[in-house]
């Protein structure tokens, strides 16, 4: 249960950032889904609904997705999903139900760097940039690894356009539950990216496996070895949903699966 003393609804990110810095107990409100699960006494709740962060906009060379866009909007955006082989739909479709996905926001998920996030695993397969109010623009992988100094707010993510094939999948004990393990892969302008999430730590790129696969001339012969390398280079932990050893074994399966899907799509579209 949360208690809130005061709500402010800034109309710009300047006002929102100022309110955030003014009170160290102030809390940003995205959709409020995760806030609902916890217990917190909040003096000032800063609702970002009116800051102009609600748009998905297609630019000439990139997509801009505002922090207050809901997961439901991402799931149903046909042009965005067309450009990235349904990645957004596939990433969020197992998260509880459509009603929750119409509430929870991209920004709250990404800024909070949740380890369990299905969406972050999908996004990390692409060369996504995050645009923060104070810290500026940086790659998603750097943001996930290092975070930012002080308290900042996410304005949008930026996804460059390119020749893209993607796929993402998850392993769950039951549908709608948190993932036990997530995997995603993309072939973006000829370069492979491979990501594992819900390890249960934050999603990470399997850099060595990516380098190995990028050097291969015959991808299909190298997919199994790449999946093995990805499971070896990342660290897997234990929680109530599964052990680290189980996750490591299943990582080989999921990575091989996502790589095969991407390789098959690439073959289909080029031949």
């Amino acid at each position: 249960m949360i208690t809130v003393r005061e709500v402010v609804v800034p109309s710009t990110t300047d006002e929102a950032y100022e309110a955030l810095q003014k009170n160290k107990f102030a809390t940003l409100l995205g959709g409020g889904g995760f806030l609902r699960m916890g217990s917190k006494n909040i003096t000032t709740l800063i609702d970002l609904s009116s800051c102009g962060l609600n748009d998905i906009s297609e630019q000439e060379h990139e997509w801009h997705i505002g922090a207050m866009v809901t997961l439901g909007e991402l799931e149903r955006h046909s042009a965005l999903n067309r450009d990235f082989s349904q990645l957004f739909k596939l990433s969020v479709q197992h998260i509880v139900g459509v009603q929750l996905r119409n509430v929870v926001t991209l920004g709250a998920t990404v800024y909070s760097r949740y380890g369990f996030s299905d969406l972050i695993t999908g996004l990390l397969a692409l060369p996504v940039q995050v645009k923060l109010y104070k810290a500026g623009t940086m790659s998603l992988e750097v943001f996930l690894e290092k975070g930012v100094e002080g308290r900042d707010l996410l304005e949008m993510i930026i996804i460059p356009k390119g020749k893209t094939e993607t796929f993402t999948t998850s392993l769950r004990n039951s549908d709608g539950d948190y993932s036990l393990l997530n995997a995603s892969a993309a072939l973006f302008d000829g370069n492979w990216r491979i990501c594992l999430g819900a390890r249960p730590g934050r999603a990470q790129l399997a850099v060595k496996a990516m380098e190995y696969l990028n050097k291969q001339s015959n991808w299909n012969e190298a997919l199994e070895e790449t999946a093995r390398m990805a499971s070896e280079e990342l660290v897997f932990g234990t929680n109530s949903r599964g052990t680290g050893a189980y996750r490591k074994e299943m990582a080989k399966v999921l990575v091989a699966l996502v790589l095969k899907e991407v390789a098959n799509s690439e073959t289909e579209h080029n031949h």
Binding site: V4, V7, G31, G32, V103
Partner: peptide, 15 residues
């Protein structure tokens, strides 16, 4: 909410 299904137990009324 504006025609979209939402969970009213998750949505603060101020929204």
């Amino acid at each position: 909410l504006d025609g979209k299904s939402v969970l009213s137990c998750v949505l603060l009324a101020i929204k």
